[in-house]
Design a protein around this nucleic acid. Structure first.
Length: 573
RNA sequence: CGAGAUGUAGCGCAGUUGGUAGCGCGCGCGGUUCGGGACCGUGAGGCCGUGGGUUCGAGUCCCGCCAUCUCGACCA
């Protein structure tokens, strides 16, 4: 490819509005162009990267026995009503009417389409397990897209669906996909990625893992144990909470606290530490049942965990409606409706002599003791893990970090096969609903993650396996007839030799060419100029290490091929 | 969906008490340069987000809307 004719431009300045490294670099280097919030066009270099990432994904999926298919982007309402998701999913599912007035939708995922494809086609246990996958555009009407390609409305995704006749079979297959995912991320050149246990929603399913690029810029919070390897998304993470040291003391005493309502205010008023308080957080369920959660004052509610206990979505409650005194709610002598759910966090178990609301305007209770005053109470873990908590497995201090989700896999169970009525016949003549697994990778997000991880102050750094071109060929002084002639000749020979090369054939200054090459991020840069030609060499510089070697022109092609092959096998080994 | 911010040339930005729009980069042409975003000359390029209002006159003041970004909520 000749750079003079490559569609797209390199920008000297950071486009306004871009704050994330991958977003800035991909805009500046001419890889993506925003069309609307969360909707991007991919320019030729980005499309080339995408094709290479897809190729690696296909190889790994095919190696698992996966069969590539293509589901439709547009689906009719009826298909999604079978699973119940037409109604259970809210704004994120984009709905519209076709010309006949029929309700249609844009696919945001394809479980329904997958089951639709195999039901009545896969009829016998003899055909299972099977896995089908596609790489296709998804549309999710995100409330707030952000971070360039990190969170978008429209994106290319590989999604795979497997069908099994037993949980054991799914377990084995699930592990194979897990391993394949690790290979995929490694092969596209990522290093700093991990898998974490994740939430699978209140819809059920036992196992779910997310693959995360570890970065401070990530949207997801992660909890890691450096000692035993425990890794979990904050949504599901558990920790051992530090215990308080105090002993049981005097009788409960009611104290006037007036306008002090928040933990901070009460602590300030009574001159105590938040460690020695128990706070209440109130929610209502979908059925408008009151939920009161008690936690140590220093902890926050993990709403995902609480939802599982309540078996319902929850949202903040209007406490007045339930006769509760906001700011003075406490875990002793609490009066709530009969159907209310009261949950005590494990952070309270060992607390003695703490302060909690008196369930009475302007008053709190002090000297409350969990062992004495909360007898018979069941404690549940409903708190967000925080700095200082310890690993539930080994007791080591947990590390909190952030990550970008680059893939997820989970065991779906029979939710879709049941609701849609897919059955296969078993050896004993009975019928069963196959157990499903599903497995996703966002292609665009994976690409942005590579830029995020490897990009430096000069620009993008592509791994050899996914670089749009292997070589960025920068002849300097193209006004020199000799350089010009040799450049054309070298370019032809590189192309003929199967080397993917971007040829900067522009008559611009050396600075422009060199900075552009660094911005665009090809792994190898080849420079020739009157100076190098006088010595019969080319200057070969590696983008990532900055290392430069002078290679005799006669050896250039074979040398480049060797570097390319070495780099690829190094990444994939 | 809540809070905040921003919309002026392809990109980054300036535009004073209201007087009919400018700078840098980029782009075209001519010339001089030439290994780290060269220089001189010259040109093209604008519904000032949008609709209304105030005014003799609005990029500028007022109201509505839209779009985009950031933080949060949400994220099968």
């Amino acid at each position: 490819m000749k750079l003079s004719h490559l569609v797209g431009e390199r920008l000297k300045e950071t486009p306004s509005g871009a704050t994330l490294k991958s977003h800035i670099l991909m805009l500046r280097a001419g890889y993506i162009k925003q069309v609307s919030a969360g909707i991007f066009s991919m320019l030729p270099p980005a499309q080339r990267v995408s094709e290479k990432v897809q190729k690696i994904i296909r190889e790994e999926m095919d190696a698992l026995g996966g069969q590539e298919v293509l589901f439709p982007v547009v689906m009719p309402r009826e298909l999604w009503e079978l699973s119940g998701r037409y109604n259970s999913i809210q704004e994120e599912l984009l709905r519209f009417k076709d010309r006949t007035g029929h309700d249609m939708l844009l696919g945001m995922t394809h479980e329904e389409a997958a089951v639709h494809m195999v039901m009545n086609t896969v009829k016998s246990h003899e055909q299972l397990p099977c896995m089908i996958y596609q790489i296709q555009t998804k549309y999710r009407d995100e409330a707030r897209p952000r971070g360039g390609l990190i969170r978008v409305k429209e994106f290319l995704m590989k999604d795979a669906y497997s069908f099994h006749t037993s949980q054991e079979d799914l377990d084995v297959y699930y592990q194979k996909v897990f391993d394949a995912y690790n290979r995929i991320y490694k092969r596209i050149g990522l290093k700093n990625f991990i898998s974490v246990k994740s939430d699978n929603g209140i819809m059920g399913g036992k196992v779910a893992d997310e693959f995360m690029l570890v970065t401070d810029n990530g949207e997801d919070r992660l909890v890691l144990c450096d000692k035993c390897g425990y890794k979990a998304n904050m949504e599901v993470a558990s920790g051992v909470k530090s215990s308080s040291e105090t002993e049981i003391g005097e009788e409960i005493e009611e104290v006037f606290t007036g306008n002090a309502k928040t933990i901070d205010e009460v602590c300030h008023f009574l001159e105590i530490s938040p460690e020695n308080t128990v706070k209440a957080v109130c929610y209502v369920t979908d059925e408008d049942k009151l939920v009161v959660a008690f936690l140590r004052g220093t902890y926050d509610v993990n709403e995902k965990k609480l939802m599982k206990i309540c078996r319902s979505n929850i949202k903040p409650a209007d406490t007045d409606k339930f006769g509760l005194v906001a700011g003075n709610i406490g875990c002793v002598n609490l009066t709530v409706p009969e159907d209310a759910i009261v949950v005590y966090d494990t952070s309270i178990i060992n607390m003695e002599n703490f302060v909690t609301g008196a369930n009475k305007e302007d008053y709190h209770l002090k000297n409350v003791s969990a062992s004495r005053d909360l007898k018979g109470v069941t404690f549940n873990d409903i708190a967000l893990v925080q700095e200082g908590d310890c690993c539930v497995n080994c007791g080591e201090k947990l590390t909190l970090t952030r990550g970008i989700e680059i893939g997820n896999i989970f065991q779906l169970g029979t939710k879709y096969t049941k609701t849609m009525g897919m059955k296969v016949s078993m050896p004993d003549g009975s019928m069963m609903e196959p157990i499903m697994g599903c497995y996703g990778i966002g292609v665009g997000r994976a690409i942005a993650s590579i830029v995020e991880e490897k990009g430096d102050e000069k620009g993008i750094v592509w791994p050899m396996t996914v670089a749009p071109w292997h070589v960025h060929f920068c002849p300097l002084r193209l006004d020199d007839e000799n350089v010009s002639a040799v450049s054309d000749e070298l370019y032809k020979r590189m192309v003929d030799a199967g080397i993917e090369v971007l040829f900067d054939d522009r008559h611009v200054s050396a600075g422009v060419k060199l900075t552009d090459s660094e911005l665009m991020g090809m792994p190898i840069r080849v420079v020739i100029s009157p100076k190098t030609m006088a010595q019969g060499v080319a200057e070969v510089t590696m983008r990532e290490s900055g290392e430069t070697n002078f290679i005799p022109l006669s050896d250039l092609l074979s040398e480049l091929k060797a570097i390319i092959d070495d780099e690829i096998s190094e990444i994939e080994k």
